[in-house]
Simulated assay, not measured.
Amino acid sequence: MAILIFMLVLWYTGLFFQSFFLHRYAAHQTFTMSNFTEKACFFLTWVCQGSNYLSAYGYGVMHRMHHAFVDTEKDPHSPKYDNNMFSMMWRTKNIYQDINNERILLDSKFTKNTPQWKSFDAFASSNFSRIAWGLGYTVFFYFFASVWWHWLFLPVAFFMAPIHGVIINWFGHIIGYTNFKVDNTSKNLLPIDFLMMGESYHNNHHKHSGRANFGGVRWHEIDPTYYIMLVLDKLRIIKLKKSAVRVK
């Protein structure tokens, strides 16, 4: 039971900070926060993603490129230009690392106001940090895995963020339904997004990328991350932009 609880916590906390901090804040800036809160989010993203830590700068810039070049050869991740999900994610990894390590020239529209904490990213993205987290996961499994099949979850823990990415960036452009006609292959993967905390409403998001609420087009499209954001806004931890909550 401890292993299953651990995997659920790892899945949803890591996913929340990917959706809330990396996606809706770093990439789309649907809300603002204080400098202290931003730094806290960097730290909490590292704690919750662990060995899968993604930089707000690297993720934010790459995701803006995805929207600008969706389903073209310049798209960092598109099923149209890769034979399988593994080759797509390998290419995505290489592009992400080039962006995060500033090895390529980028248009200012992709980098403008993207949060960056170089010293922390260098530590959190280091081999030392990733290996330490991986060893920590392994030790936890050693003490709490009570049946052999629990160990099957360990590779999932190691690669949680890439798994989240492939669900949306591969399957979210192949299967599902659409609410809007857009000039790309984005789909809404799940009618009720219990798995990806709103991220699976991909067609909605590509139609209105500046909206904080990825769901809400149909009655059953509930976006859990958005409702958490509403609470944080009421508590004045973040401030949602009016343009991001306006219904179009």
Score class of each variant (00 low, 15 high):
Val156Glu: 10
Gly176Lys: 01
Trp219Ser: 14
Ile167Ser: 08
Val217Cys: 01
Ser186Pro: 01
Asn179Asp: 10
Trp170Phe: 14
Glu199Met: 09
Arg211Lys: 14
Ile167Lys: 05
Gly216Lys: 01
Gly176Tyr: 02
Leu189Val: 04
Thr185Asp: 15
His173Arg: 07
Asn204Pro: 01
Gly215Gln: 02
Leu154Tyr: 02
Leu152Asp: 09
Ser186Ala: 14
Val147Met: 12
His205Thr: 00
Glu199Trp: 04
Asn179Arg: 05
Ala212Val: 05
Trp151Val: 09
Ala157Met: 03
Phe153Val: 12
Asn179Ile: 05
Asn179Gly: 06
His206Ile: 02
Met197Ile: 12
Met160Ser: 06
Ser146Leu: 14
Ile174Leu: 15
Ile175Tyr: 13
His205Tyr: 01
Trp170Ala: 07
Pro155Gln: 09
Gly172Gln: 01
His206Asn: 03
Asn184Pro: 04
Met196Asn: 11
Ile163Val: 15
Ile168Ser: 00
Val217Gln: 04
Phe159Gly: 05
Ile175Gln: 11
Phe180Ala: 06
Met196Gly: 05
Trp219Asp: 13
Met196Pro: 01
Asn204Glu: 03
Trp149Leu: 13
Thr185Leu: 15
Ile163Cys: 06
His208Gln: 11
Asn169Pro: 01
Met196Thr: 11
Pro162His: 00
Val139Phe: 10
Met196Lys: 08
Asn169Lys: 06
Trp148Gln: 14
Asn188Thr: 05
Lys187Cys: 12
Ile192Phe: 14
Gly198Arg: 00
Thr138Lys: 07
Phe171Met: 15
Asn169His: 13
Phe153Ser: 13
His173Val: 08
Phe171Glu: 05
His205Phe: 02
Leu189Cys: 03
Val156Thr: 12
His208Asp: 11
Phe171Ser: 11
Val166Met: 10
Ser209Lys: 07
Trp151Cys: 09
His206Gln: 03
Val182Ser: 08
Met197Phe: 12
Asp193Cys: 05
Ala161Ile: 07
Lys207Asp: 00
Thr185Gly: 15
Val166Lys: 03
Leu190Asn: 05
Asn184Arg: 03
Phe194Pro: 06
Phe171Tyr: 15
Ser186Ile: 00
His205Leu: 01
Ala145Lys: 05
